[in-house]
Every structure is written in C-alpha cells, then in structure tokens.
Design a protein around this nucleic acid. Structure first.
Length: 376
DNA sequence: TGGTAGGTAAACACAC
DNA sequence: TGTGTGTTTACCTACC
C-alpha cells in the first residue's frame, strides 16, 4: 500500500513553510520544487476557476512517458497566440498529471458500500484484466486527461486517440467507433476548444484541442466523482495523516464522514496553527490498515519555520500575487513536501476544500495514468 | 414522466 | 482517390 498523503493542511499563516507528508512512492532522495497558485477570495465552490497543482510545467520531470510526441505541439502552441500561452500558465494548470508516482492505482470498478472501517481495512483487489472491461470514464474525462497529460495542454485528435489507447487497452481492441465518439465529443462539448495549428510548423492533419479553463473545474469534479464511485478505499488509504489529525479533534470527529475527503479538510482547517508531519511510524507506507477514528494519537502536527534561503529562488514574488491570487511553493525532499505561503496568506475553509478537491482529482486522474503501467 | 447527459452510428464536407 | 478530421443529426440508454 502506498501512503500518498500529499494533502494540504489548512491554516492561516505568516511567512511560513509548511511541512506536509510526502507520498512514500518517492524512493530516492530528491529535492524538487514547483509552485502553484490559487485565488484568495472570493471562492466559489463548486465549481471554482481554480485547480491547485503540486507541480506545474516547471516541474523538472514533468513529462510523462505517455506524452511522447507532444513536444511539437508545444512549439506550435507557442505560435498559436497569447490566449493559448496563457492557458498553460493560468491558474488551472494541472501538471500534476505528470506526478504519477504520487498516485494510487484505481480500485476495482465494483460498486461497494462499506463502512469506513470496512473500507479502511479492505485490501486492494486485483484490477480487472486490462482489456476486459470498458473504462468507467466518459469520453469527456478521457479527453480531458489526455489533454492535461500533454506538456502544453493541447493535443491533436490523433494523439488523444493514442493517449486513450495507451492508457486503456480496452480501446485497442474496441471497434473504431469510439474514435468517432471522441471527435463527436470534442466538437459538441463546450469543454474543449479547437486551436488552429500554425501552418508554418504544422505537421499532420487537423487542429489542436485544449480544455476551456472555465470548464476545467467541472471536468475535474466529474473525474473526481467517477473515481470516487469506482474506488473503494483509496481516499482513506491515501490520507492516513488526515484521518489521524481528524481524530485529534473528537468533537469534530464524531460528526465526520470519513468516507468524505472534503470533511477531512474541513476538520483540518480547525487546526489552523498546525501542520502535518509524516514522521510518525504509524504512517509508514507499510501501514497494513488505514487509520480509523479509533486512532487518536497517530499523528503529530507542527508548524515549521523554514528559512527562506533554503527553499530556493522559486520563492520570488509572483505577479499574480497582486491580482487576487496567492502563490504557493512546493519543495519536495525524500521525506516531506514543503508548502511555502507568502506573507499574510490566509486560507479559508473553502480554499482548503478546493485544495482537497484538487488532491482528489489528482488521485482520480493520476490513478488512470498509473494504470497504463500497471494494467487497467 | 420529462429533461439531461452520455454513447453510438451515420452522413457529409473538407483538407491533406 | 483514400484517409483523417470536424461537424451535425439522430437515436438510444441511463440517471435524476
């Protein structure tokens, strides 16, 4: 079992580095950094024009193997126009799709109703054979993930086909009608937008397709719901620290729905002066059973003052910070992720919910990418 | 029961 | 001319 607790705690903070637990899939020591942005307020939820990303296009190893061949589209995209360029830098960047190591494999597609304890103690079931079952995700979700997995967030339809085939072997053997459905979806759905290729650099037929930023939250939510429906216990397995933290507040714990990841974040926000650490042995990746409300002593939360010069040059002020958005920086070592907040940053409950929602979406979509390697 | 979303098939036009 | 791409329409099913 992987401990992928990369959930962000909530807090009101002065210039502070927050240390959060790092997914245990990080096998080798590393020091990476990336940054994310989110709106300060007001925040509508849902949907919200925001998606936090533990990594962005700046992420050093952001390119997924599945994104092969997309570099040419980056070049093309640079000449598409300002609108396209801004798309990949906007606040809804989802380069987390490239962080596949953080994510759990999708659970069996069987719809199950379990108690939290049952869920938390149910071992992962073998995944269905790769080509035997149709993915539960709509074509909109598949297209969304394909585009988001590309470095430049735009793909020609052919590479959308390729991405789907590479990630869902079901479509390797399926009749070609699904391609028609993909094109149909691209044309019909308002979520996707066609971008004319630069004729000078264009190789191949057709246009590039991207995700309309205003529809991205809805797509994310759809993805999250689909994943939540078809996964039995990833939420709990993925957030032992959160559950542990939750259980330190019994008054909230009693009313908490442990199957609802959002409730975790709400609870965490009540511990505004603390952060999570991953150095509790009970949260090791070998934890046989995720935490339950009975585990009240399992996590220690602390606030970490982190010298600014240790987190590197990426902490320079972001222009967006003056425009209603704050910038967060992630620094990742072999043990922790560090989240750096600018001065006077306050995260309200809704923001934290969005953070949590994004984590959920990461799991949902990222798990699909894991499937490409592990078999669907 | 009606509306909506999603999937599928088909036809057509256009570009390469 | 064949193939790929993009659009549109129609029909069906499932869900709310």
């Amino acid at each position: 079992m992987e401990d992928s607790c990369h959930t962000l705690p909530s807090f009101s903070s002065h210039p502070t580095t927050l240390k959060v637990s790092l997914p245990s899939s990080s096998s080798s020591p590393r020091q990476t950094s990336s940054r994310v942005t989110l709106p300060l307020s007001p925040i509508s939820f849902p949907p919200s024009p925001v998606s936090l990303s533990p990594a962005t296009a700046e992420f050093p190893h952001s390119s997924s193997p599945l994104s092969h061949g997309a570099a040419s589209h980056c070049l093309e995209g640079q000449s598409v126009g300002q609108e396209s360029l801004s798309d990949q830098n906007d606040l809804t960047c989802l380069s987390w799709l490239h962080q596949r190591g953080n994510l759990l494999p999708l659970q069996p597609l069987t719809k199950m109703t379990l108690t939290p304890q049952q869920e938390s103690c149910t071992p992962a079931q073998p995944l269905p054979s790769p080509a035997s079952s149709k993915p539960p995700y709509s074509f909109s979700s598949l297209i969304f993930m394909a585009i988001e997995d590309s470095p430049c967030k735009r793909l020609p339809v052919k590479e959308i086909y390729d991405w789907i085939v590479n990630n869902f072997p079901y479509y390797r053997t399926a009749t070609s009608g699904w391609r028609n459905s993909v094109r149909h979806n691209l044309s019909l759905s308002k979520s996707f937008r066609r971008i004319e290729r630069d004729k000078k650099q264009s190789v191949g037929k057709g246009s590039l397709w991207c995700v309309c930023p205003e529809y991205r939250p809805a797509l994310l939510e759809m993805l999250r719901k689909t994943h939540s429906f078809h996964s039995t216990n990833s939420n709990l397995i993925n957030k032992p620290a959160l559950l542990g933290a939750a259980c330190k507040a019994p008054e909230v714990c009693d009313s908490m729905d442990f199957s609802d990841p959002l409730s975790h974040s709400i609870l965490l926000s009540s511990s505004s002066s603390h952060i999570l650490t991953s150095n509790n042995p009970d949260f090791s990746e070998n934890t046989p059973c995720p935490l339950t409300p009975d585990h009240e002593e399992l996590v220690t939360m602390e606030l970490t003052e982190y010298p600014q010069n240790e987190v590197g040059e990426d902490t320079e002020k972001d222009p967006l910070s003056d425009s209603g958005y704050i910038e967060l920086h992630y620094y990742q070592s072999d043990q922790y992720q560090y989240l750096v907040l600018p001065d006077d940053t306050e995260l309200d409950l809704e923001t934290v919910e969005i953070l949590q929602l994004d984590v959920e979406a990461q799991e949902a979509a990222g798990s699909l990418l894991d499937l490409a390697g592990g078999g669907y």
